[in-house]
C-alpha cells in the first residue's frame, strides 16, 4: 500500500487518460474530462502545503529564538494578517489591492532589477574571452545587446540587422535542437513514469 498503491494509481490514471484521449469516443471522452477536473481540484486544494511549510520553518525559528527571529515573526504576522484581510474583505477589497499594488509590486520589481548591478559587476570581472567558445558567446552577446536597442541603428543599420540574423537563424537552430531534445527526453521520462520505472517521487518522504 505504501509503494505499490501510489504506483498503481499513477499507472492507472495515466493509462486511462491516454486511452480516453486516443479513442476519443463518446464513452471515453468524459473520462478524460473527469480526470482533468479532478487534477485541477487536487492542485487547487493542495496549495496550503506551502503555507504550512512556510509557517513551520519560520515558526520554528521564532520558537528557538534563532538569529534574526524577528523577521520570521514579522513574516508570519504579515502572512496571516494579509490572508485574514483578504478573506474578510474579498478580492476587490481596497486595502488588499493597495498592499499588493503599492507595497509588494515595488519591492518585487526592485528585487528583480538588482540583478542589473550584479550583471554589471560580473560583466567586468567574469565575462572573459578565455577561449574560442567564450569569445563567440561574448561577440554574439555584444552584437545582440547593442543591436536590440535604439543605439544600434544609430551607429549603423547593419548592427540591428546582424542582431536579428543571430536571433533568427543560429539561435533558432540551437534552441530548436535543445527543444527537440527536451521533447524526446520528456516523453521518455513520462514513459518511465507511466510504466512504474520512475519512482523518485517517493524517495523524499
Amino acid at each position: 500500500m505504501k509503494r505499490e498503491g501510489p504506483i498503481a494509481l499513477l499507472m492507472i490514471s495515466g493509462v486511462l487518460y491516454i486511452v480516453s484521449v486516443m479513442l476519443a469516443s463518446p464513452v471515453m471522452e468524459p473520462v478524460a474530462a473527469t480526470l482533468d477536473d479532478w487534477y485541477k481540484i487536487v492542485v487547487g486544494f493542495i496549495n496550503l502545503v506551502g503555507i504550512i511549510s512556510l509557517t513551520q520553518v519560520n515558526g520554528r525559528a521564532v520558537l528557538r529564538k534563532s538569529s534574526g527571529w524577528f523577521y520570521n515573526a514579522l513574516l508570519i504576522v504579515v502572512l496571516y494578517g494579509y490572508i485574514i484581510l483578504g478573506l474578510v474583505g474579498g478580492v476587490g477589497n481596497v486595502a488588499f489591492t493597495r498592499i499588493y499594488d503599492n507595497i509588494l509590486t515595488p519591492i518585487l520589481m526592485t528585487i528583480f532589477s538588482t540583478l542589473t548591478f550584479w550583471i554589471g559587476s560580473a560583466a567586468y570581472r567574469a565575462f572573459r574571452a578565455k577561449n574560442l567558445d567564450a569569445a563567440i558567446l561574448l561577440v554574439a552577446g555584444i552584437v545582440v545587446m547593442i543591436g536590440r536597442v535604439t543605439l544600434g541603428s544609430a551607429i549603423s543599420p547593419a548592427i540591428p540587422k546582424a542582431a536579428e540574423w543571430i536571433l533568427n537563424f543560429p539561435t533558432v537552430a540551437g534552441m530548436r535542437a535543445i527543444e527537440m531534445g527536451a521533447a524526446i527526453g520528456g516523453i521518455v521520462l513520462a514513459l518511465r513514469m507511466i510504466t512504474g520505472l520512475e519512482r523518485s517521487f517517493m524517495s523524499n518522504d
Binding site: 504579515v78 507595497i103 509588494l104
Partner: peptide, 10 residues
C-alpha cells in the same frame, strides 16, 4: 519578509 508574506498570502 514582507514580500514573501504578501506574495504567499495573496
Amino acid at each position: 519578509a514582507l514580500f514573501v508574506a504578501i506574495l504567499a498570502g495573496h
